[in-house]
Design a protein around this nucleic acid. Structure first.
Length: 292
DNA sequence: CACTTGACCTGTCCGC
DNA sequence: TGCGGACAGGTCAAGT
């Protein structure tokens, strides 16, 4: 999925598109057997309630309902939340770069139907994602919410906070640490690689092997890159789309992710890709001083 | 304990 | 064209 900028883009789009709409019906397209996650069913706390607002914490979307319940949605790798309204159904104003043409499709798991006949589709090709219904006051008590690290774009996320979080994992590999949601919320494979390139950090180093001045640069880079990507509507590599079914444009500006073999934008050496911390990892061997 | 690996699924792409 | 294997943006549980 979707990392922080993608989830935030979906959140902002959804909040605008579905806020105050009333849910008329919840339709499940997948049998519980093939999708054993905890699903929103035609529960009385969903049907006939209205959308109050759409929130985000880390990579989790929280759709607050007037019933005082919240639909929590995790998109994982391939989840999509796509709104289909009057305009997209009948062509006028249909986004030109929409990747979504006809819904429901093969990957549709859940449809929320609103009383004005607009719909919100939850699609998920790989079925890793989930939706669950939680009483709104209990959202903050979810294990996930208690464990997850700070929001990197919050004002309260200072350089000192970042250093504190990293200090918990001094001997660990920096890439694994950046991907660890309990250290810091929201980074995934794309933005971890992009941030380390910006700070000229070798992803193979342990946290305590990185000079302080590069940690400072990493802190700034993470915030700048995430903010920039939100402006660009996130990254679409394969599946990701926003709430209107449109692609994100961040990868047009990416420095390393999905650029294997292309020249580094700083030094011109070709970008390399290798497996590290269990993930495809993109670096400039020269700028980041990486030995394969 | 802390870190690494495999599993969850489906689709796509690459090499033979 | 067909088939097997590797890989894909995330997160757990299980194993070392």
């Amino acid at each position: 999925m979707p990392e922080l900028p993608e989830v935030e883009t979906v959140r902002a789009g959804l909040d605008e598109l579905i806020r105050s709409k009333k849910i008329k019906e919840v339709k499940l397209y997948d049998s519980p057997k093939s999708w054993p996650n905890d699903v929103v069913s035609t529960d009385k706390f969903v049907k006939d309630s209205s959308i109050l607002k759409v929130r985000r914490r880390a990579k989790l979307l929280l759709i607050d309902l007037s019933s005082n319940y919240t639909i929590a949605v995790h998109l994982k790798m391939t989840g999509q939340l796509v709104f289909v309204g009057e305009e997209s159904r009948f062509g006028a104003g249909h986004p030109t770069d929409s990747l979504i043409h006809n819904l429901p499709d093969k990957s549709t798991r859940v449809e929320l139907k609103f009383d004005d006949n607009d719909s919100l589709f939850f699609n998920d090709q790989r079925k890793f994602g989930w939706m669950k219904l939680v009483p709104t006051p209990e959202v903050d008590n979810l294990d996930f919410m208690k464990k997850v690290g700070p929001e990197p774009l919050d004002d309260s996320f200072t350089l000192e906070v970042f250093k504190e979080r990293l200090a918990r994992r001094k001997k660990s590999n920096i890439k694994a640490v950046l991907l660890d949601q309990t250290v810091l919320a929201g980074l995934g494979n794309i933005y971890a690689d992009e941030s380390m390139w910006a700070a000229k950090i070798n992803p193979k180093l342990r946290v305590n092997e990185i000079p302080d001045q590069k940690i400072v640069k990493l802190y700034e880079s993470i915030r700048e890159i995430l903010a920039f990507s939100i402006q660009a509507g996130g990254s679409t590599n394969k599946n990701y789309v926003n709430a209107k079914g449109e692609r994100g444009k961040y990868l047009d500006f990416a420095n390393v992710y999905a650029r294997e073999g292309l020249p580094c934008k700083r030094c011109g050496e070709p970008i390399a890709k290798f497996k590290h911390a269990g993930r495809g990892t993109h670096v400039c061997l020269n700028c980041q001083e990486v030995e394969l």
